[in-house]
């Protein structure tokens, strides 16, 4: 297993956001985590990436217990999160944002190649490489955030609501690119409210309700599950 969460409990003050959550991601998989607002999707991502410490439980990544590691140390191990709301550095140019993705890398030649790769995936970013990130549209910022994460050559790419606030056509485009990234060999864990898109593209999926996993299975199977269709796909 590339990533394992065991009985993860995460609290904000007195409020418990995750009550003993366990999940796993194997190498090469695309795993989706779906759930309603407030189910704990973003909290799960914060726990994995290390922005928020755990109250109890364990996180193992690539055979190493990273529970006590800081976010920047986890990133150096090959775990990169595209945070909710994109989190591009608004005052930096597109180019500088991508440079930030490669912040920890010293292999300049390979970094230059990855620039090409990102610009191939997102031609829009190539056109705007000198533009300040804060002035990009929502879709472009999302592309930039994903491109920046790719610059770190992650073993596991974490995506938190990549479709949030985007027009339907753009959502389609973003998911196509995510599929392409997966196809190129990056393991992906994606959190989504857009269950239709997430389930149809994922190898496996977890359903999160009030801080706990309530269901798991292959994406296609969950798509057909009547209770899921009712709760998340708006089909009676």
């Amino acid at each position: 297993m590339l990533l394992q969460l065991e009985d993860v409990v995460l609290t904000y003050g007195k409020i418990e956001a995750l009550h003993g959550l366990s999940l796993e991601v194997a190498e090469g998989e695309v795993v989706a985590l779906i759930g309603a607002n407030g189910a704990g999707k973003t909290s799960t991502m914060r726990a994995i990436s290390g922005i928020r410490g755990l109250s109890s439980g364990r996180i193992v990544f690539d055979g190493v217990d990273i529970t006590k590691r800081r976010a920047d140390q986890r990133m150096r191990k090959g775990l990169c999160l595209v945070p909710e709301g994109r989190g591009v550095f608004p005052g930096m140019s597109v180019r500088e944002n991508l440079d930030m993705g490669a912040y920890t890398r010293r292999d300049k030649a390979a970094v230059a190649k990855d620039f090409e790769r990102v610009f191939d995936l997102f031609p829009r970013l190539s056109e705007r490489r000198k533009q300040t990130a804060g002035t990009l549209s929502g879709g472009e910022q999302q592309m930039l955030a994903i491109g920046r994460a790719l610059m770190s050559r992650p073993k596991l790419l974490l995506l938190d609501e990549p479709s949030m606030g985007l027009a339907p056509m753009l959502i389609q485009q973003i998911f196509t690119i995510i599929a392409e990234i997966a196809h190129q060999g990056t393991t992906i864990l994606v959190v989504e409210q857009n269950a239709q898109q997430a389930l149809s593209r994922a190898d496996r999926a977890y359903v999160l309700e009030t801080g706990q996993i309530v269901k798991t299975g292959p994406g296609q199977e969950l798509l057909k599950d009547p209770s899921i269709r009712e709760a998340y796909l708006g089909v009676a």
Partner: peptide, 21 residues
């Protein structure tokens, strides 16, 4: 210097990019 600006603009995301705050 870019790391400094990253922390100034968004400390959490800077950490996600591997910047030691």
């Amino acid at each position: 210097g870019r790391g400094v600006r990253a922390v100034a603009q968004d400390p959490d995301t800077a950490a996600l990019m591997g910047v030691n705050q």
